[in-house]
């Protein structure tokens, strides 16, 4: 087990390094003009442009930049943001934000899981009856209507009818988190309900469910103890990754409600060509994803006795 973990760890590190190197090189491919705002592009003479680029270390040959970059990472120096928050260390920029995203994300995940799975169970138990159809309508609606439209609806309803605060505010964290969490959960509930129903319905046709019935267990016992329990196995695989990726925040929801989280950070950084932030975030997200998958594999192993972790990597 230890050997396996170490092997996995090394593989992960290499994956992360590869990902960030590719991003690094891609960023360097962009014309350096993107580094400047429109105002600056007009005003600067070539020398001034060069001076700014050099200060940011963008003029050296790419190979040299890459080596220096690796050196910096080894020292855990992730550089300084130049465009998001000029002059502030990237770790600080990110650090102040991910706690917010994570908190909202985890709350939403918990709610979505619970509500989504319950809805999925209800849909399975009352398959093809009214509840099942209503659940399907909900799922289709949430997926068909563009996210921003749904959010606007939630905003108007929440703000006008329920009197909830319209924007996230750190002074009023509780009530002002309600609408963002609701929006985050909308689609997730539908997703979890859909998958729960699907896996549970799959289970219903299995022979051992027939055996359970013939044993004399009633529907409730069968559903919970056999169908749901078995259906959960393929689903839990994704839960650790989902949990970790809540750190990444949701771009749309956070923008919409002005949540000071990680969501818009990556796209903003790319737009403004803040290379240090982009690179660090890529590494961060890659690491999160990998850890999430790994935890998911371990969770699978715990939950399904047929599965053991093998040398080939991964649960099977």
């Amino acid at each position: 087990m230890i050997k396996y973990t170490i092997k996995r760890l090394l593989q992960s590190l290499i994956t992360i390094l590869l990902a960030v190197t590719i991003v690094f090189l891609l960023l360097r491919l962009l014309p350096t003009d993107y580094y400047f705002t429109e105002d600056q592009l007009m005003k600067f003479t070539t020398e001034q442009k060069n001076a700014a680029l050099e200060a940011a270390g963008l003029l050296d040959p790419v190979g040299e930049q890459l080596v220096r970059f690796y050196g910096q990472i080894l020292h855990l120096d992730f550089g300084i943001s130049r465009r998001i928050q000029s002059g502030i260390a990237v770790t600080q920029v990110i650090g102040s934000k991910f706690e917010v995203s994570m908190r909202l994300g985890l709350i939403s995940l918990a709610i979505s899981l619970v509500l989504g799975v319950i809805l999925g169970i209800l849909q399975t138990v009352f398959k093809d009856k009214l509840i099942d159809h209503l659940g399907t309508v909900y799922t289709v609606f949430v997926n068909a209507v563009p996210a921003l439209v749904s959010y606007s609806l939630v905003l108007v309803f929440g703000s006008k009818v329920l009197g909830l605060p319209a924007l996230y505010s750190t002074r009023n964290v509780g009530p002002s988190s309600i609408l963002p969490v609701a929006c985050l959960s909308l689609a997730s509930i539908a997703g979890y309900a859909l998958w729960t129903r699907r896996y549970m319905v799959d289970e219903l046709t299995r022979d051992y469910i027939k055996l359970a019935k013939v044993k004399g267990l009633n529907t409730r016992e069968i559903m919970i103890s056999h169908v749901l329990r078995n259906a959960m196995v393929p689903m839990v695989q994704y839960i650790p990754a989902s949990m970790l990726l809540t750190i990444g925040g949701s771009l749309l929801v956070e923008r919409f409600f002005s949540v000071p989280g990680m969501g818009p950070l990556l796209t903003d950084a790319i737009n403004r060509y803040d290379v240090n932030v982009v690179q660090t975030l890529v590494m961060f997200y890659a690491a999160l994803g990998i850890v999430g998958v790994f935890l998911g594999d371990i969770l699978m192993m715990l939950v399904d006795p047929r599965i053991t972790l093998t040398e080939k990597g991964g649960a099977r």
Binding site: A166, L167, F256, S258
Partner: peptide
């Protein structure tokens, strides 16, 4: 000073007196 995504949200804010 509150940051908003665009003036659609902003209008809601104003309407709510925020």
């Amino acid at each position: 000073v509150r940051i908003i995504d665009d003036t659609v949200v902003g209008f809601q804010l104003y309407d709510a007196g925020e």
